[in-house]
Each structure stands twice: as structure tokens, then as C-alpha cells.
């Protein structure tokens, strides 16, 4: 391996690492809350709400993230009422903002399915007991339903986090220079394709390893009552 190349590539890709991290964190923060809301809607007795949540998850899980990204970035950017609205244009007009929106909406669909599984796994007796104790609906959700559901859903959600990290690479197709964007540029400048791939790949693997470790630690903390 050429050391000169490594000295050139590592700082550039590290710059991209920062942007990848920001994209991931922002879209996960938005997407998790949206996903939670969608999961609750999906399980509600209101027909309109549950079918909206179902349709949302079908559409966003049934189409490629790249299509969603292009539809938002190029498609919405074409519409005049989006261009004339300063708030909408702030979201759609900038590649990074638009990537966060697409990633957040996309991960919300997957998160809602994961959390729905967690919410459904809660024994009815626990909820009934909480009702019998006179807990309000909100308190019940906060103290009983949500903690149990998240504990159940955490391993699957860890996989979803890795998918979001990988999804951020698509932002490079709409002019955002994160790790993959810089890597592609370096590949066409230096022709050292395998070396650049290896460095960028190691960065992604490190992020994912860090995330998986954090999820495992959280899981161990949430299930610390279990005998080991």
C-alpha cells in the first residue's frame, strides 16, 4: 500500500466521517420519533389512523431509498409552490437537509414495524393491571408499555441503525460529500480503487461496530434483572 496515498485519503475521508455521523444522528433522532408515532397509530382502534400508518410503511418500505431521495430532491425541487415556500425550500433545496428528510421518513417506516412488534409482544395482563391501578393512558404508555416494547425491539432496532448508516451513503448522489462521496471522488482522482475502498470500508465498519456495541450495552442494562 502506498503511504502517500494513505496520508492523502485518511484526512479527506475523516472529513466525510463527520458528515456521515451528523446525517445518521439527525435522521435517527427524527425517524425514531416518527416511527414511534406511526407504530402507535398502526395499533390504534381508529381505522383511518391504522390504515394510514400501514399505507405509509408499505410505500416507504416498498420503494428504494434512492428513488425517494431523488423524488424529494429533484422532484419536489421542481414544484413552484415548494420553491416559493421558504421553509419547504430550506428542507428540499439543500442536499444534506433533503437527505436527512428522506432518511428520516424512510427509517420511520422500518422503525414503526420494529416497534409495532415490540408493542404487540406486551402481555395484555400487564396493561390490564396498570389500568386496574388507575394509571392514565399516557402514564401507562410511559411506565409500562414503552419500556417493555423498547426492550423487546432493541436487537432489531440495532440492525436498523446499521441500515441508516449505510443509507447515508446515498446522500453522495445528491451532492453531499460524506464518506462515500469523498471516496468516489478519490477513486476517480487516484485510481487506487481498492485502497480507497478499504479505508472507507473500515470507517463504516468502525461506526457500525460502535453502534452495535452501544445497543448491546443498552440491552444489557435494560435486561439486568435477568440471571446471567
Amino acid at each position: 500500500m502506498d503511504f502517500e496515498l494513505v496520508f492523502l485519503a485518511v484526512p479527506t475521508l475523516a472529513k466525510g466521517l463527520w458528515l456521515t455521523a451528523i446525517l445518521t444522528i439527525t435522521s435517527v433522532a427524527i425517524g425514531f420519533n416518527l416511527g414511534l408515532a406511526l407504530a402507535v397509530m398502526r395499533l390504534s382502534k381508529n381505522r383511518a389512523m391504522s390504515s394510514f400508518a400501514k399505507g405509509y410503511s408499505t410505500v416507504f418500505r416498498g420503494t428504494p431509498l434512492l428513488v425517494q431521495l431523488f423524488l424529494f430532491y429533484y422532484g419536489l425541487g421542481q414544484l413552484s409552490f415548494v420553491r416559493d415556500n421558504p421553509v419547504l425550500w430550506w428542507v428540499v433545496g439543500d442536499g444534506a437537509h433533503c437527505a436527512v428528510m428522506a432518511l428520516a421518513l424512510n427509517t420511520a417506516a422500518y422503525t414503526s414495524e420494529i416497534l409495532r412488534g415490540g408493542l404487540m409482544s406486551i402481555p395484555a395482563g400487564l396493561v390490564e393491571a396498570a389500568q386496574a391501578c388507575g394509571m392514565s393512558q399516557l402514564l401507562r404508555f410511559r411506565r409500562i408499555t414503552f419500556p417493555l416494547a423498547i426492550r423487546q425491539a432493541l436487537p432489531a432496532y440495532g440492525n436498523e441503525l446499521v441500515l441508516v448508516v449505510k443509507g447515508t451513503s446515498l446522500a453522495s448522489t445528491i451532492t453531499v460529500l460524506e464518506i462515500t462521496g469523498h471516496a468516489k471522488r478519490l477513486m476517480s482522482q487516484t485510481y487506487a480503487i481498492l485502497e480507497i475502498f478499504a479505508i472507507a470500508g473500515v470507517l463504516y465498519l468502525l461506526i457500525n461496530l460502535l453502534l452495535i456495541t452501544l445497543v448491546r450495552l443498552l440491552e444489557a442494562r435494560l435486561t439486568r434483572y435477568l440471571p446471567r
Binding site: V162, T180, I193, F197, A200
Partner: peptide
């Protein structure tokens, strides 16, 4: 663990 796009590139 690595993005699909990077593998394709």
C-alpha cells in the same frame, strides 16, 4: 457493514 453503493463503486 459497508454501504452497498461503495461496493458497487
Amino acid at each position: 457493514g459497508v454501504p452497498e453503493l461503495l461496493i458497487i463503486y
